[in-house]
Design a protein around this nucleic acid. Structure first.
Lengths: 160, 160
DNA sequence: TATTGTTATACTCTATAACTATA
DNA sequence: TATAGTTATAGAGTATAACAATA
């Protein structure tokens, strides 16, 4: 079962087709890549029985111990109600925990557990496999360039 | 009503937060940007009452008159059943039409209508506004670099 | 009054499976 | 047998609105 085949949608586009003016838009490229990547992601993480946002959420909690749910939501770019559900899930699995903040009793301070850190390490390894083809095709340098540009793009999204 | 405010989720992340090892992964950046961009897209296109894929689909039909639905699906990176629904929608709006292919009678050859082209032009203009901040923050050169890298990424997705 | 967390709900996007008609 | 198109359906991901507790 080491097969890496993906169902119908994972088929590459015909080389002859034109993008036309659509090719000028970042949004289009982003979406099609992200669709593809998240299908592969789902394949890998499917074995682990988890939903998309979970991994990112735990990784961010791990990198920022004690952060609040609102902060988490902002960092992943989703609504705070999403943070609630994700943290619920993480807690249920025993990978993260909420502690009432001592400074602001409205807040929950979020922390990873030991089991959470272990799982995180496992997932990082698995995800490197998912992104392997991408990393390969780009090389370290271009990857850095890409990430830097993407960060600028993300920041630019918030200049109203 | 020229406001550009976006509801809760559009709030920028706290600058102090760390991405940690997550920062090495393209998938994460892609998803958060794409979420943000598609929210803005939805804001703009909401007035036009249309769903996400529609614009890309029509643009591709316009750039490749006579293509089949399977080809369309592959180009946008989705399942063929999606193509059916999108073309249904486009036809209902009078922006595209199916004609039985003369060479292979299983196929539908897709074409845009005059109204479709007009609407497409309108949408391209509207979308330039959506991506304006992004384009601004990058500049023509970096944008080209970004698009080129993204295309390589997309292609790399299919090297199983 | 504003913010944090919460719940319930509804909507959009997408894949899957089963089917038909052609090839 | 394989491909193009179709249909119906189920699942994931997400936003919205309304609310309680705390600031």
């Amino acid at each position: 079962m080491e097969e890496r085949r993906i169902a119908t949608p994972g088929t590459p586009p015909d080389a002859e087709l034109e993008l036309g003016r659509l090719g000028e838009f970042v949004g289009f490229r982003l979406r099609r890549i992200q669709n593809q990547l998240s299908r592969e992601f789902a394949q890998v993480t499917g074995r682990y029985q988890l939903r998309q946002g979970l991994f990112s959420a735990l990784a961010i909690i791990s990198a920022n111990p004690g952060l609040s749910q609102v902060m988490l939501a902002r960092e992943v770019g989703l609504d705070k109600s999403m943070a609630v559900m994700m943290v619920d899930d993480l807690e249920r699995r025993g990978w993260a925990e909420r502690r009432r903040s001592t400074v602001d009793r409205r807040r929950h301070a979020l922390y990873t557990t030991e089991a959470g850190e272990a799982w995180l390490a496992e997932m990082f390894a698995a995800l490197e496999v998912v992104e392997h083809d991408v990393l390969d095709a780009l090389g370290k340098d271009d990857l850095r360039v890409l990430n830097a540009i993407l960060d600028r793009v993300y920041t630019a999204c918030f200049r109203g």
